[in-house]
Design a protein around this nucleic acid. Structure first.
Length: 564
RNA sequence: GCCCCCGUGGCUCAGUUGGAUAGAGCGUCUGGUUGCGGACCAGAAGGUCGCAGGUUCGAGUCCUGCCGGGGGUACCA
């Protein structure tokens, strides 16, 4: 399966167009891309194209007449059963039902690789996501980030990209230092000493726990060190501890990273100095007010700060946010040579996008190779009321809380089933509710139901691996199910092209619904000996449906339960 | 002020580079299983796609203005 049905039909119609031109039935003109969409109504076929409407002006012909001539020149292909030119000038295409029936076998053969495309042609893409500050547990917002990034990565991999998942660890800069100071203070307290608690420090309970843990582990060692040095060491220790939590939470959510890139390394390895030098050479750096600024004509502001002693006095540490971003983009696109770098950011960072893009330009890197997916905020609801979250009051729902209360599957599904552009209202009551109002179970139920049918069949002595005469499949509900399964590659194509994984949960629901309707109409395991061949064919069909359902669920990072 | 996102049936949301009568779930109403999982299925009611212009054969989709909601506009990340 290298191309979607839609592309094959598009190519096919293009062939008809060209053939019509060569035969002199159509005037010579450049053939535009043949847009093919799914027929919205039964009488519009499985696929439909409106190219002829677009061509009417250039060809100076009635669009319907164009369509007729194109149809007359369409070559024979096995997957098309019927084609017609209608009303204003559409070309409607119906798939061949015998061909459809046979696809069941190819779906089964493909298994977990069904829907794989080579859209990416092996291009290397990095998806960098979550990347939350390692100064505390992950929040619900990070969960949305994680789910989006991880699923997008899966979709891109399915579409033929070579994908790497990366977590960017912000372990340089003022927040980490402040975190270190906070832990230091709690650590000192645990040992009966008093230490100044930093202004705007981290006040969560976990900070106190870390302080106590450190006191038990290290004793008075850090108290005897020079303060700044102790803070630096403690910060490293505490960041490592927090990263362990983060890693665990993400693993429980089903998210795994290939690489963890540490911001600090940009400074330790001299990458930042190198990139800053390049910017300076190219004239994009100005200095005034005792600080270093990045300037670029694309920016609305005169300049953006790169380094200032007022932010970070320590030259060895990260100067500003942008400074690291500039070093990082160079690291991604040049040093490590990714063709594309995808960033998953909260929409509150949208203002930084033009800066990073401008920096890329300044460094001579094509800014289009940087892609930013911005997602809106998540608000939690419980008992019909918004759950207010505030880190200061310590009353915020962590990803850990959510995992303990809801479990990974509903979290993933519900955070996925919305465009990134729209804010998410996460209804805690609904997420845990096991009812028809909860779409998560609707999809998983279809999978479990098929598993149950297969168990039932085996108990009755049916073999599941037996070949079958698939041409016996022709019931409308059988055909609908096959058609729906064959849509998966197109869902993957859309998701990879538009970088919008939210198509998956919608498709999953449709597939489940199509299966349930089939189940109503068609008995799979028949006890009538006369139906033996049909039973065999339907068992193949149902196995294929189970496989595709599992495939979608796995793409979404969810489980496909055998029973529930 | 400026920048970004959103505004589609009662509610939550889809809508494939502009296409044929705008879709789904939930909710409401009505109905369905003497056989494979009723966490299921079928049918019905319900929408001037925020408002006003514009672009064209054709606009929920593109452009402009306005209204309403959210976010951003730090020498924080």
């Amino acid at each position: 399966m290298a191309a979607t049905l839609r592309t094959r039909i598009s190519d096919w119609i293009r062939q008809g167009l060209v053939a019509a031109q060569e035969a002199g039935d159509l005037p010579a003109f450049e053939v535009p891309p043949v847009v093919v969409e799914r027929g919205r109504r039964e009488e519009h076929g499985d696929y439909a194209s409106s190219v002829c409407l677009k061509l009417a002006r250039e060809a100076r012909m009635n669009p319907l007449e164009i369509a007729r001539r194109v149809v007359a020149h369409l070559p024979e292909v096995d997957f098309v059963g019927r084609v017609e030119a209608v009303k204003p000038g559409y070309i409607n295409v119906w798939l061949d039902e015998r061909w459809l029936a046979v696809q069941v076998e190819s779906i089964l053969e493909a298994g977990e690789s069904f829907g794989a495309l080579d859209l990416g042609r092996g291009q290397r893409v990095q998806v960098e996501f979550v990347s939350a500050n390692p100064t505390g547990p992950l929040t619900v917002g990070s969960a949305r980030n994680a789910v989006l990034g991880d699923t997008l990565a899966s979709v891109l991999a399915a579409a033929g990209y070579e994908v790497e998942r990366e977590y960017y660890v912000n372990d340089a800069g003022s927040q980490v230092r402040k975190f270190g100071e906070s832990v230091y203070a709690r650590y000192a307290e645990a040992l009966g000493e008093s230490a100044p608690f930093p202004e705007d420090g981290y006040r969560g309970q976990y900070v106190a726990d870390l302080g106590r843990e450190l006191a038990e582990e290290a004793g008075r060692r850090y108290l005897e060190m020079e303060y700044k040095e102790a803070v630096r060491a403690i910060a490293r220790w505490a960041v490592d501890r927090v990263l362990e939590w983060i890693r665990k939470d993400l693993a429980d959510l089903g998210v795994h990273f290939d690489t963890w890139r540490h911001e600090r390394s940009f400074y330790e390895e001299g990458l930042f100095d190198k990139v800053l030098g390049m910017l300076r050479e190219r004239g994009y750096v100005v200095e005034y007010d005792d600080a270093v600024w990045f300037r670029h004509p694309d920016l609305e502001k005169d300049a953006v700060l790169i380094r200032s002693p007022k932010v970070i006095p320590e030259p060895s540490e990260r100067p500003t946010y942008l400074a690291s971003d500039v070093a990082y983009l160079w690291d991604k696109l040049v040093e490590r040579g990714f063709d594309r770098a995808i960033y998953i950011w909260g929409a509150d960072h949208h203002g930084d996008v033009p800066r990073v893009k401008a920096a890329a330009k300044a460094l001579g890197v094509d800014p289009d190779r940087l892609v930013f997916i911005l997602y809106q905020l998540v608000t939690l609801w419980r008992g019909g009321e918004e759950v207010r979250m505030s880190k200061r009051s310590g009353e915020f729902v962590t990803l850990r809380d959510l995992l303990d209360e809801v479990g990974p599957d509903p979290i993933r599904f519900m955070l996925l089933a919305r465009t990134a552009d729209a804010p998410v209202d996460f209804d805690l009551d609904l997420a845990v509710e096991q009812s028809e109002r909860n779409p998560v179970y609707y999809v998983q139920y279809a999978h479990a139901r098929i598993a149950s049918i297969l168990r039932h069949a085996q108990e009755r002595g049916w073999s599941l691996d037996e070949p079958a005469d698939l041409s016996l499949l022709h019931h409308p509900s059988e055909m609908a199910l096959i058609r729906k399964m064959l849509e998966l590659p197109e869902v993957i194509e859309q998701g990879a092209r538009k970088l919008t994984p939210h198509f998956l949960p919608f498709y999953a629901q449709e597939l489940a619904a199509t299966f349930h309707a089939f189940y109503r109409d068609c008995r799979v395991v028949s006890s009538d000996p006369a139906d033996a061949d049909l039973t065999r064919a339907r068992l193949r069909l149902v196995r294929a449906a189970k496989s595709v359902l599992a495939r979608v669920l796995h793409l979404m990072g969810m489980t496909a339960p055998e029973r529930m």
